[in-house]
Design a binder for these strands. Structure first.
Lengths: 189, 189
DNA sequence: TGTAAACTAGACCATTCAGTCTGTTTTAAG
DNA sequence: CTTAAAACAGACTGAATGGTCTAGTTTACA
């Protein structure tokens, strides 16, 4: 199936912003990457900002949901779904190469632009809520607050991915995740 | 004591880059912030890049060491020093407001510039090595690898700080750190 | 006090930036 | 076939970018 102009643009923007960040990516770079003239691009998006926000919605958000498959399964303890997802994710190389695209943009844009903050938090919240749902569907040892635990899980995964983005080896990342899994297992009743 | 021109520049750069990132901070902004004319500034630093790298060395690095006081204490289990430092750090508000300045710059610049990557990794490594030293000075339950545990600690703390930098409340951050402390305590023999 | 070096000062420069403008071509509907 | 809208195309614009240049001023020391 042939890719539409709009899709070509979004793919190029995702790729370049993932590597160079928002301010590090110029319109000229984007135009060159997707080989589409300026007039066409501005036909689809009214500004650079709107374009990148669209990438968050239509590229990064689905990607996050694809990576972190965290839906409630019949007859499976929620926390076991989380653990097995963590295992699976730790095997996927591409995620680690430049850190988490959402987190990267979050660091750069959220402190400086409320629209980005809002859009990025939507993705983050949906992820956290899925984890929360799974945790509430589990029997945990007493005194464990599911909400703060869901934050902890996300914080640790994101922290692992974002540590020294360029050279962080798969192995290093994996051994970090093992500690998280280790901790989660200790919370099962 | 009076502040030198060079110090004024570094302070302004630290502040602005912390908020806006590297590419989001222009020379014009820096000049305005510190009220120093261009010619003077370029007398001290030959380029924007050199200037920001100097900020990493002379502002961010000492700041990290000041925040994370992780030196070996006589007669104290290393892991207890880590735990009490985590407690202390979680009470310091300023760190959380815009995330960790080192991590922020890391996310933006490391994938794109080898000099930044190197300089930032120096700070990160010194922190990790301190933690490693403390862990090696502790009795941990069997099967725990101190090296990967030190990575895990940093990943979790950085992840906690960087999650939704703007609005992440102190409370939320604190409850995340509690899980880390909880885990660390479970590893004491 | 003479003088070289350190520092201050800001006008100026080429380049790049995001975004606009004015057309041309293609598509789809009647 | 006609026609209006959607899409393509790229030259052009004003503002902002990092950095240079040529001065003037202060400092430190001989």
């Amino acid at each position: 199936m042939m890719q539409t102009t709009r899709e070509k643009i979004l793919d190029a923007v995702f790729k370049l912003v993932y590597i160079n960040g928002y301010n590090g990516t110029s319109m000229a770079m984007i135009l060159k990457e997707c080989g589409i003239p300026k007039g066409s691009l501005y036909h689809y998006f009214k500004s650079k900002k709107e374009m990148v926000l669209t990438v968050v919605k239509e590229r990064i958000n689905p990607r996050m949901n694809e990576f972190y498959q965290l839906d409630v399964e019949e007859g499976v303890e929620g926390i076991d779904t989380i653990i097995s997802t963590l295992y699976k994710v730790s095997k996927k190389e591409l995620l680690v190469s430049n850190g988490c695209p959402l987190n990267r943009l979050n660091q750069e844009m959220s402190p400086v632009d409320a629209d980005f903050e809002e859009e990025i938090n939507l993705v983050y919240d949906s992820l956290r809520n899925k984890i929360l749902l799974l945790l509430n569907n589990s029997s945990l040892v007493e005194g464990i607050d599911a909400e703060s635990l869901s934050e902890f899980i996300i914080a640790t995964v994101w922290g692992s991915i974002s540590l020294s983005p360029k050279q962080s080896s798969q192995k290093r990342y994996l051994s970090t995740i093992k500690h998280l899994i280790n901790y989660l297992k200790s919370l099962k009743v």
